[in-house]
Write a protein that binds this DNA or RNA. Structure first.
Length: 528
DNA sequence: ACATCCCAAAAGAGTCCTGA
DNA sequence: TCAGGACTCTTTTGGGATGT
C-alpha cells in the first residue's frame, strides 16, 4: 500500500532507523525543516488525522499572517524566505492548493513597526542583491516572499558578490524543494535545485539546472542536506568559519557519523558549485612544511626554516620567498620527523620538506601548487613501496579520479603535473631495496594496485604504469620504516644516492626566488 | 547513463584501557 | 609503571547498489 503523501505518515520510514534522527532534527528549535518547511507540511489539521504523528512544530499554534513579524523579531530566523512562524498556506492533507492572495503575501497590517513591503519591492530589492535569483515576478504560489531578518541582513551587509550568489542558490534550492514537495504527487525523490544563469543580471534562465536529490524511502539525506545548507547560510551571513567536525557535532544525532558529513559537504560543494572556502568550511591542518621558505600571510611572516610548520588554509594566498632548489614530499609524518632528527637539512640545505600525512588534504595540495607555479620549484615524492604509496603519489600528481569540486578551479587546479616519484621504487626491489624487510600483499593491496595500473593508463603515465606493474608482479611491499630498521642512516643515504642518480635540479649558487607580489614588495623597499 | 548513497579502506596522530 | 592494543579523530580514496 502506498503511503499517503503530505501527511506525517508519509515521513515515517518503513525502516525506522532514520526516524529518531529525523524527529530530533525536526524538533530542533532553529530547524529550517522543523520550524518551517516540513513542520508546515505536518500542519495541525494533518496531525489530527494521523495517529502516528511525531513531527510537530515547536510552536503548534496555527499562526496568522499578523504575528509573522512579531515572531520573526523575537526569534532568530532560519532560512531566508522561511522565517519562523510564517503562515504556511496552501497545503491540504493530500494535495497542495494555492492560497488566497491576501494570505500569500501578508497584506494585513503588521503589529510590528516593520513596514511590509510590496511583492514588487521585495523582488526588486532581492534582484538587486541576488542577480541570479530571478523568479521573474512570479513566485511559486506557496512561497511567502517577505524578507526575514537574515535576508535584510544580506541586503544591508553588502556581502561579496560571490557570497550573495551562493546564498541565492541556497534560497532558490529550498524554494524549489518546497514546490516539488507540494506539487508532485507521490514523489520517490525530492530535488534541491536551482537554475544556472547564462549571464549576470539576466532574468532568463539558462537551460542548465543544478540539482541534488534525496530518495524519500529514507529521510535522513534530505533532512541532513537542508540542515547543512542552513548552517552554511548562517556561516556565510555571519562570516564565521567551522570545520567539518564542528558541523558534525552541531547535529550529531541527525548526521550519525563524521564520514557522512564529509560526503555531504562534498556533495553540497558540487551542488552549489562553490569551494569549501566560499562556504566558510575549514579543514584542520594536516600537512607540515619545513625548510628554507618564508611565507608572508595576512597574519604575519612565517619562517619555516627552524621548526616544522602546519600548512594552514591561508598559505595558498601567501606571498613566498625561498632559497630552495626543490621540494621533497614524504608520505608519512614519522618519516618527516625522522628525517629532521637525522639532520636532513645538513645534507639537503636547499630542500623544502613537506608531508601531507597520508592522503594530502586540499590545503596542502593548494599550497604545493602555489609553490610549484609561483616559485617554479620542482617537486619529488618519497613514498612507501606499496600500492597506497603509488596511489598517494598519483593523487598529488593528477588529483582524485572522482574529480569532486571542493577547491577553487576544481581538482585539476591543484594537480602537480611535473611532479616526479623518486622512491621507494618497485623497480629497485631486487637491488637497492633488496636487503630491506618485505611484507606480502593483502587483499586490498591487490585491489589497489589494479586501480593504480588503470589510472596510470588513463592519464598516460608510462613510468608510473611500469612501477605499478612491477609491484603487481612482485606481490610484496616495502615500507619507508624498513629503511630505518635496516640502518639508522639508510634514508639519508638512499636520498643522497637518488640525488646523484636522478636529475634533481640543484643550483650550486644560492638563488633566491619570490612570488611576484613579494618580489614587488621587496623592490619597493629597496627603492625607498 | 548518470546521480546518489552507503560501505570499506587507507594514511596519520592522539588518547584511553588493560595486562604483565 | 610501561608497552601494546583498541579506539577516536580527520583527511582522502574507490566500488557497488539503487533509483531516475
Amino acid at each position: 500500500m502506498s503511503k499517503p503523501f503530505l501527511t506525517t505518515d508519509f515521513f515515517k520510514d518503513e525502516d525506522d532507523s532514520d526516524d529518531d534522527a529525523l524527529t530530533n532534527a525536526l524538533s530542533q528549535p532553529q530547524s529550517a525543516l522543523g520550524d518551517d518547511f516540513f513542520a508546515s507540511l505536518a500542519s495541525p489539521a494533518r496531525q489530527s488525522r494521523s495517529p502516528t504523528a511525531e513531527i510537530a512544530s515547536p510552536d503548534p499554534q496555527p499562526c496568522s499572517s499578523t504575528d509573522r513579524f512579531v515572531s520573526s523579531s523575537q526569534q532568530p530566523s532560519t532560512f531566508a524566505g522561511f522565517g519562523n512562524n510564517r503562515p504556511q498556506v496552501g497545503f491540504s492533507s493530500q494535495r497542495a492548493v494555492p492560497s488566497q492572495p491576501s494570505q500569500r503575501f501578508g497584506t494585513q497590517k503588521s503589529t510590528n513597526a516593520f513596514t511590509q513591503p510590496t511583492v514588487e519591492e521585495i523582488l526588486e530589492r532581492f534582484d538587486d542583491a541576488h542577480p541570479c535569483f530571478g523568479f521573474d515576478n512570479e513566485l511559486p504560489p506557496y512561497i511567502d516572499p517577505a524578507p526575514t531578518q537574515l535576508e535584510n541582513l544580506v541586503l544591508q551587509q553588502h556581502l561579496p558578490e560571490r557570497s550573495q550568489i551562493i546564498l541565492s542558490r541556497i534560497r532558490d534550492a529550498i524554494l524549489n524543494l518546497s514546490v516539488e514537495a507540494t506539487e508532485t504527487r507521490n514523489p520517490k525523490m525530492l530535488y534541491l535545485k536551482y537554475n544556472l544563469y547564462s549571464k549576470k543580471k539576466s532574468r532568463i534562465p539558462a537551460k542548465k539546472e543544478q540539482r541534488m536529490g534525496s530518495r524519500l524511502n529514507a529521510m535522513r539525506p534530505l533532512a541532513s542536506k537542508v540542515r547543512l545548507l542552513e548552517l552554511i547560510q548562517k556561516m556565510i551571513l555571519t562570516r564565521s568559519h567551522a570545520t567539518k567536525r564542528d558541523l558534525f557535532y552541531k547535529h550529531k544525532s541527525l548526521f550519525g557519523t563524521q564520514n557522512y558529513v564529509d560526503r555531504l559537504v562534498t556533495d553540497i560543494c558540487n551542488f552549489l558549485d562553490a569551494t569549501r572556502d566560499e562556504l566558510f568550511i575549514l579543514s584542520c591542518s594536516r600537512g607540515s612544511v619545513m625548510g628554507p621558505l618564508t611565507l608572508c600571510t595576512s597574519t604575519g611572516i612565517i619562517n619555516c626554516e627552524p621548526t616544522p610548520t602546519s600548512i594552514a588554509n591561508n598559505f595558498s594566498y601567501a606571498a613566498m620567498r625561498t632559497t630552495a632548489d626543490y621540494v621533497l614530499i614524504v608520505e608519512k609524518d614519522t618519516i618527516f620527523q625522522r628525517l629532521i632528527d637525522e639532520n636532513f637539512f645538513d645534507h639537503f640545505p636547499r630542500v623544502v620538506l613537506v608531508t601531507g600525512r597520508g592522503f594530502p588534504d586540499f590545503a596542502t595540495r593548494q599550497f604545493l601548487k602555489r609553490v610549484h607555479d609561483d616559485l617554479r620549484l620542482p617537486m619529488y615524492t618519497f613514498m612507501d613501496c606499496d600500492p597506497h604509496g603509488l596511489h598517494i603519489a598519483m593523487t598529488y600528481k593528477y588529483g582524485s579520479a572522482s574529480k569532486k569540486v571542493q577547491i577553487e578551479g576544481g581538482d585539476d587546479a591543484v594537480t602537480l603535473k611535473n611532479l616526479q616519484h623518486i622512491g621507494l621504487l618497485p623497480s629497485q626491489m631486487n637491488d637497492l631495496l633488496g636487503p630491506l624487510q618485505r611484507l606480502p600483499f593483502n587483499r586490498t593491496d591487490f585491489n589497489k594496485i589494479h586501480m593504480v595500473i588503470d589510472r596510470s593508463k588513463e592519464v598516460g603515465d608510462t613510468s608510473m604504469l611500469y612501477e605499478a606493474e612491477t609491484l603487481a608482479q612482485c606481490r610484496e611491499k616495502v615500507e619507508l620504516e624498513a629503511l630505518h630498521a635496516h640502518s639508522p642512516h639508510f634514508i639519508i643515504d638512499y636520498l643522497l644516492q637518488r640525488q646523484n642518480e636522478f636529475p634533481m635540479i640543484l643550483n650550486f649558487d644560492v638563488i633566491e626566488k619570490s612570488t611576484p607580489a613579494l618580489a614587488k614588495m621587496y623592490e619597493v623597499e629597496v627603492n625607498l
